[in-house]
Amino acid sequence: MPAVELPVQKWPGRIHEVTLGGNGRKKVVVGGEATLPFLHFEGAIPHRPAIAIEVHDRNPAEWAENLRQVWGSALKSPAAWAKKASELGADLIALRLSSAHPENGNTGAEAAKKNVAQVLEAVDLPVIVLGPEVAEKDNEVLMAAAEAARGQRLAIGDCMEKNYRTIAAACIANGHVAIGKTPIEINLAKQLNILISDVGVSRDAILMDPTTGALGYGLEYSYSVMERLRLAGLQGDAMTAMPMICTVGEEAWRQKEARVSEGVPTTWGQAKERAILWEGITAISLLEAGADIVVLRHPRSVELARATIDKLMAGAGQRSA
């Protein structure tokens, strides 16, 4: 009988470890993997992937009713929302400063400072601060946020190809982690990591967001780009070995399958459950492609993702299959 020799791959590279929080606040470390996701038999996976819950600095009227109900009155203030998210088991709070968007209030630096301070005050979790994704406004409010939270080691994003210099510089000056976001393309992701590094951000202070495609809406592109980035990082390419963050909730809940309950085919099934699975399957698929942080919206998805991560991390420390 032929003998089975279990293939164990030797990976020359390792994913950089990135620490968020600390300095009196809880600390979350992501990255550090020496093998592909959850293949504990092959190499160390020192940190479990983290779950961030998405919180906005304004009441998001455009959110699906299903989501709005479950968060209820917490939606009225970012501090209350963050607090509830913390209670529901978030590892991180992802505060999106959407009120700075020209069409959602166009608030500026002062509001950003205030909101960030309130969230930092309300929870002891590490915080990710995301801009409204309008380049000039991002620069304005993210700079303010970076200064307001000096030393708290936030993750701040997104650095895009157009404006990475300003935000990266603010991260260096105030001791934060920079998030670089690129549109689902492996080379562009790597190029931005290089450019951010060239500005002087150290490798342990960069996260990359390769852009999330939700289930049925480009998931396969994100999935493969992330697998490739992770493989490249493990093969020793330091400029793709950044931990990855995925804005799963935002993308999944943008889609009809998650938002709409009426006027859709009956073959889509029951709306509430479908929405949660839409977010949940997107999250698990991307975790298995290498995501280190998933940003989620629905508490049930958070619960499911947490339980799944527990099970996937269960093999940690064992060295056999």
Binding site: E185, I186, N187, L188, K190, Q191, I194, D237, M239
Partner: peptide, 16 residues
């Protein structure tokens, strides 16, 4: 397209 994107950098995205 992918190789082109990788090569439209100085000198290349893959410095190795």
């Amino acid at each position: 397209m992918e190789e082109f994107t990788a090569a439209a950098f100085l000198p290349h995205t893959d410095m190795d």
